[in-house]
Design a binder for these strands. Structure first.
Lengths: 138, 138
DNA sequence: CTTTGTGCAAATTCTTTGCACCAAA
DNA sequence: TTTGGTGCAAAGAATTTGCACAAAG
């Protein structure tokens, strides 16, 4: 569980002025590795900050991504997903329940870029699609 | 250059009844490895089939994906992209010009799935992001 | 005839923009 | 007191849906 101080320091590190709203969004992402959508973040924080608007959640997430504090995932074509863990790991998307799972046991080598002199690569995204165990049970 | 017959046979193979519109969309994808968006396909085919509607392009692409004849790419968070090449290869997205390039020289190993007993994986998508050579020139 | 496909218009959903007000340095 | 942040309402863009008509088996 990341404390308020942890979140605050994290924002400062990425040169982001910590407002109440920004700290709440960043904190939510740091404490919930569920790769939430904009709406999920908004709904979760609204009770805590009743004046919060969805526009601010959008503004904040765009800023966090721009500054490199969080990663945006394009794994789900319906909604953007956000991940506070910017270390190298892959994701699994369950087509049945829509959940996004972390996959840490991919070889580090996966992220070593192939020789591509014609491109300057800054990000690699590895995504698996299928059905998760709990959905297979039904 | 794939002929009308090639496209026709391809549709039949995937159990898709070949209408004029479906053949045109599938043919466009087979002959243009540019990972086009729905709108690009629509605009390209409209002169040829003036009565074509964007709804039909959407319907057709959804059907082609469902039947496994083409792959949908989620690499671009703004628009869905489509690829008639369903063989194992990665993609590079240029943040500057928005073009999507094929990357064939990734190790086949990249597509060998890590041990994941809790998931039934059917698709792997490997995406690189950055800037392409022609954009770097400026 | 009966099922399937097409295409228009409208609806829905996700995201961004313009602008006025509020808060912080 | 000036700059930056928030949030409402409206706009914009991508995609889906409902439905009538057309085409194919």
């Amino acid at each position: 569980m990341k404390t308020f101080g942890d979140v605050h320091r994290h924002l400062i590190k990425f040169e982001i002025r910590p407002s109440v709203q920004r700290t709440a969004v960043m904190g939510y992402l740091m404490n919930h590795a569920t790769h939430p959508t904009v709406d999920e973040i908004y709904v979760a924080l609204n009770p805590e900050i009743p004046t919060l608007s969805k526009t601010t959640v959008y503004n904040t997430l765009n800023l966090l991504v721009e500054k490199g504090a969080v990663q945006m995932l394009t794994i789900d074509d319906k909604n953007a997903r956000y991940d506070a863990d910017t270390s190298k790991h892959a994701h699994f998307y369950c087509r049945c329940c829509g959940k996004v799972y972390d996959i840490f046991n991919v070889k580090a080598e996966m992220y070593r870029l192939p020789a591509m002199p014609e491109f300057k690569v800054d990000t690699v995204e590895i995504s698996y699609y299928g059905t998760c165990k709990s959905c297979l049970g039904h």
